[in-house]
Amino acid sequence: MKPLLKVVRKGVYSSLQDNGRFGYRRFGIPTAGPMDPLSFQLGNKIAENVGENAALEIFYGGMTFQSVATHEYVLVGANMNATVNGRGINPWKTFVLKEGDLLKLKFSSDGAIAYLIPIGGFKGREILNSQSNYLKANIGSPITEGMILYGENFPLNKYRKGLYSKWIPSFSNEKAVRVVVSHHIHHFMEQDIERFFSSTYQLSTGDRMGYYLQGPPIQTKRKVDLLSEPTMFGTIQVPSNGQPIVLMADAQTVGGYPTIGKIVEEDLWKVAQLRIGECISFRKETFDGKAIND
């Protein structure tokens, strides 16, 4: 273990995340892991990290770090307009911090979440086979000012590495995501379902547990009393006010609200990167045109 960075300003919210914690859903522990798995994976590819690696997941920016050892990093995901000692750096491309350097993340201008990934990953305490923070159950430590983040000793690469610009995901406004329709669908008013799939919904607030959307309400035909059943990252719950909640990476493992569907795994990053006030729309996923779930 090698001390890498000191947190000088902790910003809005950040946490250490690896691929996630698997095998504990039956005990009520969510998978956690990255909210934007696409950026997380691309970042680890750029860093040439193999196996289980932890990144610092950063919401909205506003963070400052001081480097305590020379090391190479990559910053991916939302554009945080980052600087090193006041000079701008390119995201999606590795860069070197020398001892004493100041890395500043301003506020995100495109997307909501960034990943700071050292070569070799950060090293946090492994709990239940994962380094992902899940603070609700006291798994992992909250990121605080003055805290030291650790990594592994890796030599610097001879050349900096980056991603072809055409492969860099865009987080711009107005996104469409694919939804697998839920088996609760018959509980909802037909015209409301139709409206759900033809309108846009705006993100009003959210965190790692859930994103609260606002738009045309979706009402059930009558009051429904459902048995609690497993929920997951991407499940869209509809409480009695008719406004959908998309369950995110830290969502509770079971829920009792009716659900309208689940956002497909491949599109979760698009939802995660919504900024408050941005809009999203939904398309029915039929898996290559073949009808499923009746």
Partner: peptide, 14 residues
């Protein structure tokens, strides 16, 4: 299978 979650009337398999 990564994991399986039993509940009242349903088993969800990942």
């Amino acid at each position: 299978v990564i994991e399986s979650v039993p509940s009242y009337h349903m088993v969800t398999v990942f």
